[in-house]
Computed example of a mutant assay.
Amino acid sequence: MSVLLVAIGAAVGAPLRYLADRAFGARFPFGTLLVNVVGSLVLGYLTTLPGGALTTGLGAGFCGALTTYSSFGYQTLWLVERRAIGLAAVNLAANLGLGFGAAYLGMSL
């Protein structure tokens, strides 16, 4: 049952990540930042709940498919390649700082 819930969660999270990425302009990866922060908040909260199939489905499935380290890494390097070093630094700091802060907030709820 857990595998099915993970698959369902991923089927919801992945399209949301895609849509968030497409909803914002190409100059700065706001979509990736948004999904990483939201996913960190949700996963932080889920870690405070008793384990089970539903939390596994939401954590590994939904949050795993919603958030994206690979896109964050690629987009940061893309900014560096375009000599937008300041924006790359902001992207790095925002993803890490807001991600950790959102996870902490989620755990505190």
Rank of each mutant, 00 (worst) to 15 (best):
residue 1 M to C: 05
residue 3 V to Q: 10
residue 108 S to T: 05
residue 42 V to S: 00
residue 25 G to R: 13
residue 85 I to D: 11
residue 19 L to W: 13
residue 2 S to L: 14
residue 90 V to T: 01
residue 1 M to A: 13
residue 8 I to S: 04
residue 76 T to Y: 03
residue 19 L to C: 15
residue 37 V to S: 08
residue 25 G to C: 06
residue 80 V to N: 04
residue 3 V to F: 14
residue 92 L to F: 15
residue 8 I to G: 14
residue 22 R to C: 01
residue 86 G to Y: 07
residue 36 N to H: 02
residue 12 V to S: 00
residue 15 P to M: 07
residue 6 V to R: 03
residue 6 V to C: 10
residue 39 G to E: 12
residue 48 T to M: 11
residue 60 A to R: 13
residue 62 F to K: 02
residue 3 V to A: 11
residue 103 A to H: 03
residue 108 S to Y: 01
residue 14 A to V: 14
residue 62 F to V: 02
residue 106 G to R: 04
residue 77 L to E: 05
residue 58 L to A: 01
residue 56 T to E: 11
residue 80 V to H: 15
residue 30 F to D: 04
residue 11 A to S: 15
residue 60 A to V: 13
residue 5 L to K: 06
residue 108 S to D: 04
residue 104 Y to H: 05
residue 86 G to W: 05
residue 26 A to G: 14
residue 13 G to F: 00
residue 85 I to M: 13
residue 86 G to E: 06
residue 14 A to N: 01
residue 92 L to A: 06
residue 107 M to Q: 15
residue 15 P to T: 09
residue 9 G to S: 10
residue 106 G to W: 11
residue 58 L to G: 06
residue 82 R to P: 07
residue 67 T to H: 12
residue 67 T to K: 14
residue 42 V to M: 07
residue 38 V to G: 01
residue 98 L to N: 15
residue 76 T to M: 13
residue 10 A to L: 12
residue 86 G to K: 10
residue 76 T to L: 04
residue 6 V to F: 07
residue 42 V to C: 00
residue 32 T to I: 12
residue 31 G to S: 08
residue 47 T to L: 11
residue 107 M to S: 13
residue 27 R to W: 02
residue 68 T to C: 06
residue 59 G to A: 09
residue 108 S to G: 10
residue 33 L to W: 14
residue 33 L to D: 15
residue 101 G to C: 14
residue 65 A to H: 05
residue 100 F to V: 09
residue 73 G to A: 12
residue 38 V to R: 11
residue 21 D to V: 02
residue 102 A to L: 00
residue 28 F to E: 14
residue 83 R to I: 02
residue 1 M to W: 07
residue 48 T to I: 01
residue 47 T to M: 12
residue 99 G to Y: 00
residue 41 L to S: 01
residue 36 N to V: 06
residue 21 D to P: 01
residue 84 A to L: 06
residue 77 L to N: 07
residue 2 S to G: 12
residue 71 S to C: 08
residue 69 Y to N: 01
residue 31 G to V: 02
residue 44 G to K: 03
residue 56 T to G: 03
residue 108 S to W: 04
residue 32 T to S: 02
residue 26 A to H: 15
residue 48 T to H: 06
residue 103 A to Y: 06
residue 84 A to I: 05
residue 105 L to T: 00
residue 48 T to E: 11
residue 31 G to I: 09
residue 108 S to I: 11
residue 55 T to N: 00
residue 26 A to W: 05
residue 8 I to M: 09
residue 46 L to T: 04
residue 27 R to V: 12
residue 62 F to W: 10
residue 28 F to V: 02
residue 18 Y to N: 14
residue 84 A to Q: 14
residue 71 S to V: 08
residue 71 S to F: 13
residue 103 A to G: 11
residue 25 G to T: 13
residue 82 R to L: 13
residue 52 G to R: 03
residue 3 V to R: 07
residue 39 G to A: 06
residue 104 Y to I: 09
residue 50 P to Q: 09
residue 43 L to A: 14
residue 85 I to K: 15
residue 75 Q to G: 00
residue 85 I to N: 11
residue 75 Q to D: 07
residue 4 L to R: 10
residue 78 W to A: 15
residue 83 R to Y: 04
residue 94 A to N: 01
residue 4 L to A: 05
residue 48 T to W: 02
residue 104 Y to D: 05
residue 100 F to S: 07
residue 109 L to E: 06
residue 95 N to I: 15
residue 36 N to P: 10
residue 7 A to T: 08
residue 36 N to M: 07
residue 96 L to A: 03
residue 78 W to V: 07
residue 18 Y to A: 08
residue 15 P to N: 02
